[in-house]
Design a protein around this nucleic acid. Structure first.
Lengths: 155, 155
DNA sequence: CGATTAAATAACTATATAGTAGTTTAGTTT
DNA sequence: AAACTAAACTACTATATAGTTATTTAATCG
């Protein structure tokens, strides 16, 4: 393999970006962020909210604080953590939207490929869940309201 | 540790979001995305552009394709890959901006904590890099134009 | 100062995965 | 059909790190 062509952006920058996303690529950390969304919490409170162990929490909190995503404030024997980088919620919201869109597309693909005609399947489902005698209109409404994953920024 | 409080968002959703960020949390993958930004490329071309090995590339490309971020099109013996999810560039741009802001803040912290007065240090640096006789105006300009990492979406 | 509690840290294990070398598969040409 | 090349896949290693147990540190109170 020859040397890479001149990169558009220094690899060091890409590394920093990758590091940023790495921090967000853990469910536990997203749970922490979700819990802190509504306001400052200490470690014990975060333990209860997330179900994570204290030592594990401390570890994650340290990483996130050093990365500048959280701030820490010691008060007595407690340490309170707060969101320092609200951009993370925007990231999660965008990602949720994208994943939802993709699931919708996949659902559509499966419905079209199903051995039953889409209308038969959809109507069957709609009739059960909505208990309406109308088969055409509800089936269209159900399609439009296909559930995208709700963003975790909403309490 | 007691059971977690009712989460705001199902853990399954957070897991999907974490998976999405995990894909972006690798420098190699960001290099691939950067290369594909300007248009479709086959694997050999991506090898040259990124300096990554062919087998490694294939692996990453498969993951990203299955995740819906890339599309693959076989043409003859070649496989061409294309960006399917342009949102990734928005993510990277936002992350770059955030990292840049943070670096600026850190720089400011260091400059204020330095044993030398900030103006003396900045003026010294500016004189060397810009070779102007003016010491006040350039120093302020340099401050305002402190380099944020450029986003990799710009060619 | 000793006791208590919250939080951080150290040491360890299990798991995931990037990267590599080797091999197989797929498509094309002669 | 054989030869060639691009790309995918397999098997392996090295590395990073989440999660856990145990311990230490920090703050407070009696």
């Amino acid at each position: 393999m020859s040397k890479p062509a001149k990169p558009f952006v220094p690899v060091a920058v890409l590394e920093a970006v990758a590091d940023y996303f790495k921090i967000l690529s853990e469910t536990s950390r997203l749970q922490i962020l979700q819990s802190l969304r509504s306001g400052s919490m200490n470690v014990m409170e975060l333990c209860e909210a997330t179900g994570l162990g204290q030592a594990n929490l401390s570890k994650h909190l340290k990483v996130m604080t050093q990365a500048g995503i959280l701030t820490r404030q010691a008060r007595g024997t407690s340490a309170y953590y707060n969101i320092a980088d609200p951009l993370v919620f925007e990231f999660c919201e965008l990602a949720c939207g994208q994943i939802g869109d993709r699931l919708q597309q996949q659902a559509k693909t499966f419905l079209q490929a199903a051995p039953f005609p889409p209308n038969d399947r959809t109507a069957n489902k709609t009739t059960q869940s909505q208990k309406t005698t109308s088969q055409k209109t509800p089936s269209q409404k159900t399609r439009e309201k296909a559930p995208a994953p709700t963003s975790h920024i909403r309490n």
